[in-house]
Design a protein around this nucleic acid. Structure first.
Lengths: 225, 225, 225, 225
DNA sequence: TATGAATGAGAGTTCATTCAT
DNA sequence: TATGAATGAACTCTCATTCAT
């Protein structure tokens, strides 16, 4: 009996392993070749599977992307949660530091977030989109509540708003600080200095102003976020 | 007669007119079909020209996009400049109102900015990228200086930084508030309410906090942006 | 059943068969339409395959050509070898007869050789060129040694040189004796008589003089080829 | 009156000059880019004329090629004629030397001859082909007769045959000694040594054997060429 | 479940040729 | 006569997707 169950479990495990193999392969290829220039064939080859097999697990390149992004966001949120619970930052600067540290070495997350919006425009089924959004929605609500705990001046519900705001900043500054090769070359010209941007520093400055602004507003009035 | 586009452009003015015809066609197709799904053939057909003719004026779909974006940004900056000079907003809320009004009806600008970063990753020559950036760079520096005049608490050079910041917010909130069709459907579910976002309102809130934050910082200390 | 080409080639033999089907189709189209005016689409259609399928087996029209040429040359060399071993020609005239007989009905070989040099100028990868040359190189060295056996007055190594010389004559006279349609029409005019050329006869005459010349030189002196 | 004639003459001269400009431009582009990869647009640009203008003088790229080739062959034949008349070579080796010297620095002639046969397969009108062949035909008959004078063992009419034979050798060895870039790389491998070929040396060896062979045959019998 | 051969629509791009100016 | 803008057919090659094995 336990043998049977084990065998079933093993099969499930094997399927999970194959899914993971695809995701791992896809992550590697995306980061090397860029999302738009990678084909399903490349992902299959990198995963050590046949093209047809990949289609047994994902309906499209876009859904692979979605799954990958979901994982990366969750991992990051897990880390943020842990830090919020452990370190209990009590002021804005500590909170921002915590965030910035949590983002270190997560270039690929930034890249994925940057693409996310556009990837969702094609080849994504309702089911996949729903699943993605519900997962992350729940996850975000939870982290949002932790954020509200950390930053006492936030009104209820504004933890999530802040997270969305951070998402915007990450996407916006992420794009600007990771220009395409041609642009990079252009930006190296001396007159382009005002438009060269450092991701971490930009996030820090914007977020600092934003949070002090919120705090100030909430103190001086009941202005809603 | 002058309104007609010449069958055969024989001077610079007529060529400019033909270029514009292509840009107008392209804008229409981009907005209906989305950038990624429009082909040069579609642009040509919509402009009433042969495929080969389009290639006489632009090297690629991407360069058409760039030209279009450049035009739209400039038109918008022109408007902002005019408003700043005429209305001379003297406080943050007036400034933000001016900005928001200037953006009304400019959905296509938002859409273009949202794509800009990714479009630049393909088929754009150094020359095209340089031309684009230099034009806009100069333009932005000018508007930046006007902004500094309007918001006296800004340090020199921070006008441009603020414009970049606004760019980030526009891209970030623009993406979130214009979800792809599948996502839109998903977001209509009741539990998704916290993630439904209104562009104008979100920009207003973020920008307000950001600017009050800046002002506060600059008043209380010499903290650099 | 074995004669049929499998819908889907699942093993090496079937794949070889499909490759052959493409080559057969290509040969037909080349000879009807001429190499320069045939497209991959035409080859695909003639082979009863989809365009994409042809690309699974060959990287370009040029590589199909190369493969075809390689096959035809090898078949011809095989025949020459056999004849040399069986008939053991012992004088120049017998040798030349043997060669001429071996070329009968090989118009397509002549045509291919005539184009070979130019086809190699485009779309041929190093690998394809290397493979082609190594195969034929080995093959030629072998036949060259048989030729040396047959014509005792040849010095070691001169069998291959003679084969190259023959190649030159075949290409040169092949071009002249197979003029393009317009030229053919022009050559029919009476005053063009001196420039009308018969392939077989021209080869015979040139080769005879060439070989008697060699023989003479080698007898009277040690003059190297 | 003379003014009118002069003006007409000038116009004719100008037309001739324009024709020449095209030919000079074409020669340059052909030698840099190769015949197959040059377009009419490139020839026009290089000649400093508009595309349409080129079509006023030539019907196609191929006819430009033909005209160019005709010129180069004639120039070469002129040189050979002069040498034959001045130096009056009386034996085979002197004759061959004369020929080889006359070919020095004429790589472009060799290249043109190599392509001639294939170029004639497309876009050449009957008139152009006729004109080409008649010109060169006459020219060749004359040089042929001079050759017969120089090499006394040649029968009447065999001067032209010899010239055709030389044409064959030039084309054949010309192709082999000027391999396409890929082939060149392949031929640099050590095992390819037997297939590396020097144009001048190969021509000399082949021609020597050929002529001694002819001479020998004609002495010992009445065997026709 | 896994494979990878086969498909074929369609994208980008070029260029000989025409013809309004 | 000269121009060069405009054309559009044609070509190569890719790749998501299917499906026989």
């Amino acid at each position: 009996m336990s043998g049977l169950i084990a065998r079933r479990a093993t099969n499930e495990t094997q399927k999970e392993a194959k899914r993971d193999a695809i995701l791992i392969g896809a992550r590697a290829v995306f980061s090397e070749t860029g999302f738009w220039d990678t084909s399903m064939a490349m992902i299959a080859k990198r995963s050590g599977l046949a093209k047809g097999t990949v289609y047994l697990y994902f309906n499209s390149k876009e859904e692979i992307f979605l799954s990958l992004t979901s994982d990366e966001i969750e991992t990051w949120l897990d880390l943020v949660d842990r830090q919020l619970l452990e370190n209990g930052p009590s002021d804005i600067d500590e909170f921002i530091n915590l965030l910035l540290v949590s983002m270190e070495g997560r270039d690929s997350l930034v890249r994925l977030l940057t693409l996310l919006h556009l990837v969702l425009e094609n080849n994504v089924t309702y089911e996949a989109a729903l699943n993605f959004k519900q997962n992350l929605g729940r996850r975000t609500l939870y982290t949002g509540s932790l954020v509200e705990n950390a930053l006492q001046f936030l009104q209820p519900g504004h933890g999530v708003s802040l997270l969305l705001n951070i998402h915007c900043l990450v996407v916006g500054w992420g794009q600007m600080s990771n220009p395409a090769p041609v642009l990079k070359e252009v930006l190296e010209r001396p007159e382009m200095a005002p438009f060269r941007v450092d991701f971490k520093e930009s996030i820090r400055v914007s977020l600092t102003a934003l949070l002090y602004g919120y705090k100030h507003q909430n103190r001086s009035s009941g202005l809603s976020l």
